[in-house]
Structure formats: C-alpha cells, structure tokens
C-alpha cells in the first residue's frame, strides 16, 4: 500500500504528540490535526486525552464526525482556557503567516490599525504559545505563509518566549527549531518532494542540514487505522493540495 500525501501529513502530525503522555492533544479542527491526535492515541501514545471538537473528552476514539460511545470528561470553553494556562496540553494550531522563529499570525494581514484583510483575531494563540507545547499544521506551504516578518504576532516564537514549538508540519515537509539560535530548520521532506521545492516555497532562509531525510511514511497498521477506522470518508484528502500544486 502506498500512502497518499495527506496520509504522510497525518502521520507526521501524529508524531508530534509522541512522548506527551496523559495530556490533552488538541487539534484546531479540520481533518488532519484531529486525525493526528486520534491516530497517536490509538497507536503509540494511548494515554493522550482527545476531545470531540466541542466540549467533551471522549473515552473511546471515534471516526471523524462520529459521536463517541464513551465520554470521560467535560471541557467547556472556560475549562479549556484554564487548561491552556495550566499547560497539560499540546495544541496543533494553524497560521496564516509564520516566520523563522515560529512567530505566527491569525489576526489580520497588513497594518493592524486598518488591516487590508481582517482575519480571525488572535484567539488563544498568545496564551497557547506562552504556556503550552505548540505545533503547527500548514496545509499549503508557500512564501505567502512562510514570511520574513508576520504582520501581527498572535502566537509567539522562540525569540519572544514561546514555551515549546515542537514541529511545523506542511504539505511538503516537517520543520523544527533544533538549531543553536532556534531558527527554523528543515527536518524532513515528504516522499516525492525536493529540498529545493521547500526552500523556494519558503519566504525566508531556512536552516537546511547537509542531509535531509524523507519524512517517515505510515506503516500498514497506521494506514489501516487512518483509512478504515478514523477517516473512512477520506476527509483528509480534501485538506491537502495535490502534489505539484503551484505555490505563490
């Protein structure tokens, strides 16, 4: 069985939660981050807590969009906001812009005082990144997202006091900050992607080690769980652009 790009992404995002133990694995929504947390829980990280996308901690691990059979806890927004400050949580966020130190923007594009495009607002990103382990899922790796300077620092990077930014997973690669000055580094490229493709799609100078490995592909059991148990409707495929998509 050959894994699709989306399945490589799900598995790479799941890897982000390795070693986390009994903490909340929070995906921001959509398919890939939620699948990642559930896949990690069903395989190598069984202690993880996962939620239903609303306010229930699920006792079992349902398929995307399915109702859990068991509820093991209650996490309304106020408790979620408490948990962010408490820190027993690893969140996988999105970003409209991200810079070399992992500062991210979901608030607005352009001058904050009168933005060219108002987006969501900072939401919980400042507190999340200051208090919790954070990873990012960016479905479309492009120079518009990977920028020199973000317009409004919503999530803070390593140069601004981030707690821990573990990995940035995109549709092309896995990136991390395992460098002496905590600049973003290319950790691996997904099968079929070249290092040049990644650096071209990145609007700042990435740290590129002499040897860049390929991102591990899911094994047969992981593929079975993704396809048959967690996402039989293939929702993951809609979230990830096809290989060879033009990047601006």
């Amino acid at each position: 069985m050959t894994a699709t790009r989306a399945e490589v992404c799900v598995t790479a995002c799941a890897e982000a939660f390795r070693g986390d133990g009994e903490i909340l694995a929070a995906g921001i929504g959509g398919a890939v981050t939620v699948l990642a947390a559930r896949l990690a829980r069903l395989t190598f990280e069984p202690g993880l807590l996962t939620h239903d996308g609303v306010c229930l901690l699920t006792g079992d691990v349902p398929a995307l969009g399915e109702t859990p059979r068991e509820i093991e806890g209650w996490l309304p927004f106020r408790e979620h906001l408490w948990l962010v400050l408490n820190g027993r949580r690893h969140v996988m966020l999105g970003a409209s812009q991200i810079d070399r130190f992992g500062n991210t923007n979901i608030s607005c594009i352009g001058d904050w005082a009168r933005p060219k495009a108002q987006l969501l607002g900072v939401r919980g990103a400042p507190g999340n990144t200051r208090c919790d382990t954070t990873s990012y899922w960016i479905p479309r790796h492009s120079p518009r997202v990977f920028v020199e300077t973000v317009d409004m620092v919503s999530g803070i990077g390593y140069d601004r006091g981030a707690h821990e930014i573990r990995v940035v997973v995109t549709d092309l690669a896995v990136l991390d900050f395992a460098t002496p000055d905590r600049r973003m580094r290319l950790r691996s490229v997904h099968p079929g992607v070249t290092v040049d493709e990644v650096t071209t799609a990145t609007g700042f100078d990435l740290v590129v080690p002499p040897y860049v490995p390929a991102t591990p592909v899911p094994d047969a059991e992981q593929l079975r769980i993704i396809r048959e148990v967690l996402d039989p409707k293939d929702l993951r495929e809609r979230e990830v652009p096809a290989a060879g998509t033009a990047r601006r």
Binding site: V84, S107, W112, G124, G127, R130, M152, S154, A162
Partner: peptide
Amino acid sequence: PTRAGLGSDVMRV
C-alpha cells in the same frame, strides 16, 4: 495577572 499575551503583539496594539 496572567502569562497569556506576554511577548505577543497584543501588548503592542
């Protein structure tokens, strides 16, 4: 008092 907001542009704006 809280840690949320520290280091972010919430302090700038």
